[in-house]
Design a protein around this nucleic acid. Sequence first.
DNA 1: CCTACATACACGGGA
DNA 2: TGTATGTAGG
Length: 760
Amino acid sequence: MQDYLEGLNDAQRSAVVETDGPSLVIAGAGSGKTRVLTFRIAHLLQQGVKPYRVLALTFTNKAAREMKERIGSVVGQGIAGSLWMGTFHSIFARILRFESKHLGYPSSFTIYDTQDSKNLIKSIVKRMKLNEKAYKPGSVLSRISAAKNDLVTPVVYARDVNRTAHDKASQMPMIYEIYAQYMKECYKSGAMDFDDLLLNTNILFRDFPDVLKKYQDQFDYVMVDEYQDTNYSQYLIIKKLAEKHQNICVVGDDAQSIYSFRGAKIENILNFRNDYPGYKLFKLEQNYRSSQNIVNAANSIIAKNKGQIQKNVFSANDEGSRVRVLKAYSDVEEGFLITNDIFERRMKEHCEYKDFAILYRTNAQSRVFEEALRKKNLPYKIYGGLSFYQRKEIKDLLAYFRLTINPADQEALKRVINYPARGIGKTTMDKLTAAADNSDQSLWNVLINPNIAQLGINAGTQKKLASFVALIAQFKAQLENLSAYELAAEIASASGIMKDLHNDKSIEGQGRIDNIDELLNGIKEFTETRQEEGEPAQLVNFLEDVALLTDQDNEKGDDINKVTLMTIHSAKGLEFKNVYIVGVEEGLFPATQSTDSEKNLEEERRLFYVAVTRAETNATISFARSRYKYGELTYSRPSRFIGDIDQAFLDINPEDFVGNERPQPSFRKPMGAQSSPTLKPRIRMNYRSSGAGAEKPKLKFQSSNTNGLQAGMKVEHERFGVGEVISIEGVDPNVKATVRFVNAGQKQLLLKFAKLKILN
DNA sequence: CCTACATACACGGGA
DNA sequence: TGTATGTAGG
């Protein structure tokens, strides 16, 4: 019965069975954290704790789903299904829907995504007649978001000297007022943004002690995964909920804290000891995932950071291969190098596609890898970037759903009132918006107000508005009697979206129809599953889920055996046999914006640590000397992080690091400090002092005079790398050379344009 | 009011 | 490079 305890090491077992009182589980990378969490919960359930009395918070839906699954296999799926397990946002959205009346919100409130928020901010900036150049919606939103995560309301914000001074310094002194109006507009629209879900939960618990008490009583056990990534708002919710029973267990790794940009406070995990003085500490230090070389390389990286919880992560696996470093001439060549390597390694080592992951710092880097993989016919899946739910046609249809459920939702209304085109243009919208602002009503209320005739809108347009209102009302009337799928299909056609898309005969147009079909199929599946389970399956229920979904949540069956492309951020918690960390260059990783402060740089280094520790047997790091940024060719040098890895664990070609290509170490050795064994001199070879800390090196490519170029010669190209000349043809000035590049394939180059260096 | 084209701006990560 | 916005002409 307790055989699940068998395969655990001592530290893991203690963390599983010592369930009472506050516990801090420090879980090094790959140390079996998920196992501990799942077994701990399973253990509680086996001890007779009721599942609905356990609250378990994760950072992704996927993590929650997988854990539920695994717990279910121990205690039965029915029991596991009644756990309060999910992301912060989904759990508290659920509580807020239930308690919404206390806050004056409809229980079917809309959840605004980032784009909705930005659009709303933009319209507020316009209305306030502020300089739209200075008040960029994204910047304003991140200020507002930061305030909300710190539980700073607009009134407090206005008095907060630090914040207002910061805003003045960045030419946006009026943010406090935008914030106030933003909140008001959201409320008017019956909408909450992501941060509101947490902020409003705090307000709910603060202002309605009875409600707080209800949940405090209910949750005997509170568990939090990835605690290092919680922000203040989340921290306080947890603290309040665990206050009564004090059975709080938080799991995390300070070395993997990588979300400070969205308000995460690494201090939360560092200060746990102060919040719960009688806490028990469990340290999971054995890494079961990676080879010794990978763990050691990762340790040597993180050792460069200060202020960590002391721990000794080790691996008892094979020593394994060293961390390889590859140099490419260009982003394109980097793509070829990596895909070739995947191709060959898969053959040689009999790996599967799913054993490979390409991890990058920014989503924009994915394109060249996509192209290279496509050319080589390697199947891949790509995460992030434009997710399914952010495609225009999907957002359009979802906006109709939103509006049907919550007509006050202004962002949804603005999106579809004239899509498909029905002759309601800017002039009309301006009049309606003005009326809404003046009367402090939602746009919808203006539309359904009989006084609309007095707004100076011509009769024809009034008719169009009336038929739009009727259309939505007609959908709304069917909310109760139709299933999610039935109503969704009805809306897709009756709204005119389908017809509009069918008018577009282009390939993209066909793709959009396919996407809509896919969405409808998804809704159909949702409907049928829910109906089978006896759960409500109406459009409201679907929409409740969809706002908090991420694209990692709808992996399809045919997506399983493919090469994975994702940002390092989204790779956290995952593992792959072979990991390629690409674009490890100054200015990209670490990002330029992160090099201004030690704090930012340390987070960036933790990100690098996360990247390396994703690998089980092979980790490969690559950098390109040139790459396109904003469509412009830029030059870069290898990241200082490469120099942070102890050389003993690196497999590096010395010739790749000549002169100022040598990665600069992050730190000079402090004066007087003795050299630690893991801090040996970095890359020794071809060492030529280039004045560390000098400004950007000019890596200008030196091309040769190609007049005497002949077949058989070896040449080097700025972006394509090294190759051999196959043939020369044509007459001056149109001499054309055919060159076969080692990594970029065969190219025909006009010599008057191509910059080639003759190598022999 | 709509469409087509030109120009400006963007890339730091995400629930 | 791609997307969002502005403008001219229909």
